[in-house]
């Protein structure tokens, strides 16, 4: 791999989009549907009767559609990255990018939808602000952890398909 330029960015951009999709689906499935803490417009149009519930469900569906599109785009970028020999197939870089994508989703969506526009909150009612801030902090943590992993992954140079040495092989090599 020496002398071949390393294009970490291709893997990072794919991972960020996929991570955003993951984060969006966790929000949509867990918070919107399973726990039913909020819907997309639940602060502006509280789902208290059938009509308002259905309207919120439409916007939740549209939110899921955009999340799905991000996931598809991320998959496409990942596939293209895998076809380029100059992209190091680094687990740390990819997992870091996934974490960063999820965190970015939390931070960006949290700031815009929860704080700036107020169209919904994580857990409306008592402790609403604490839940919203906690959501942001969790996102910031994911972004920080992801960035750290990406920086550590800069040292990885193994191209896609190259054999991975197992722990046992590395121990044998060291003893030899």
């Amino acid at each position: 791999m020496a002398g071949i330029p390393r294009h970490q960015g291709a893997l990072i951009s794919a991972g960020v989009l996929l991570g955003t999709g993951l984060g969006g689906f966790v929000d949509g499935i867990l918070l919107h549907q399973l726990l039913q803490w909020h819907s997309m417009l639940s602060s502006q149009l509280p789902p208290t009767d059938l009509v308002t519930m259905k309207v919120n469900m439409f916007w939740d569906g549209l939110f899921h559609a955009f999340t799905w599109l991000m996931t598809v785009m991320g998959l496409g970028l990942l596939w293209r990255a895998g076809q380029r020999p100059e992209v190091p197939w680094s687990t740390r870089t990819f997992v870091g990018a996934l974490s960063m994508g999820w965190g970015l989703f939390n931070v960006v969506e949290g700031l815009i939808d929860h704080h700036l526009l107020g169209i919904h909150h994580v857990h409306p009612g008592a402790g609403q602000l604490a839940w919203d801030v906690g959501f942001l902090l969790f996102g910031a943590l994911l972004v920080g952890a992801g960035w750290g992993l990406i920086r550590a992954g800069r040292r990885d140079t193994r191209p896609r398909g190259a054999p991975v040495s197992t722990v046992r092989e590395r121990l044998v090599e060291r003893r030899a």
Partner: peptide
């Protein structure tokens, strides 16, 4: 209005992804 509010976070993250692609280009 609601559609724009929903799309903006995704557009922003898409822009960040594009930026990270560029800063990860080979030196």
């Amino acid at each position: 209005r609601y559609l724009v509010m929903m799309v903006v976070p995704f557009l922003f993250i898409g822009a960040v992804s594009a930026y990270l692609y560029r800063i990860g280009l080979p030196r």
